[in-house]
Amino acid sequence: MVDFVVTCLQAATPIWLAALAGMFAQRSGILHLGLEGLLLSGAFVATATAIRTGSILLAVGAAIVVNLLLSLLFWVLVTHFKANVLIVGLGLSMSAAGATGFALVAFFDTEAAIQSPIGLPRPLAGVGGPLAGLSVLTFAAFALTWVSWWVIRRTRAGLRLSACGSDPFAARSAGVPVDLYRMASLQVGGLLCALAGAELSLAQVRSFSDNIAQGRGYLAFAAVLLGGLAPIGVSVAAVFFGSALAFGIQSQLDFNDVLPPQFVLMLPYAATIAAISATVVVKRRRGEQPTLVMERTL
């Protein structure tokens, strides 16, 4: 049982960190469909740097730098060029999927996987016990969730950030530099996605293969919506999605004949649709007008 919880946490950590990234972006009013791309770029750059330099700090650092630049590009296109936030996000994910696959061949001359000699440190490996297999970033995810909660609920900047998303015009009238807040939240998101990517490639498998993210970025995006943009809610949703992923893989092994794993894996998406519909209905009952994502973002 404890082992299964650990497996779930391991599967959930990349989604969890990426979901926090998506939460910041969406709170500032930007729907972040580029999470998948940032996960891929983070995972590739971290693995490639780890192989070339042999330093885990440099690996994570390089992933962060690349993702900050990509997030900057995303921000410029969305705020200054008024591009459609969803298409740009999907385009970023597509480009990153193509670019990492291309770079895999261009730099490493393989279309399969590249192995890293080093992995992320495991703080409890010396202690032993069931938690020994967890990477440092799983523990960091707990801490970062608390930090996110504190920033959003307890600081002035957090309040302003939320204002940028829920009512950008009012925020602008009150003197909040909306575009700068959006850039800041996208940059935080880039950093978190770099960590998520490093966790994805360097924590357990210690390798990067083409399209390693396999839709985890979109799961993170769904977790943001299911969690209602609240740090704790988003984290719970992300861990639930990660568990569904782990359970889907597990059920493939254990009882393939009874329940096809695909139906377990559908759960997160169905839950998101249900949650969105329920939120809208509740809002209507309260007499509020539900905001559409597109209006909130543009």
């Binding site: 970023l92 597509m94 480009s95 990153a96 999927a97 193509g98 670019a99 696959g101 291309f102 061949v105």
Partner: peptide, 12 residues
């Protein structure tokens, strides 16, 4: 993947 990158860039 090289030309997939092109499709993504157009989308961007």
């Amino acid at each position: 993947a090289g030309l997939d990158m092109l499709n993504g860039t157009v989308a961007l």
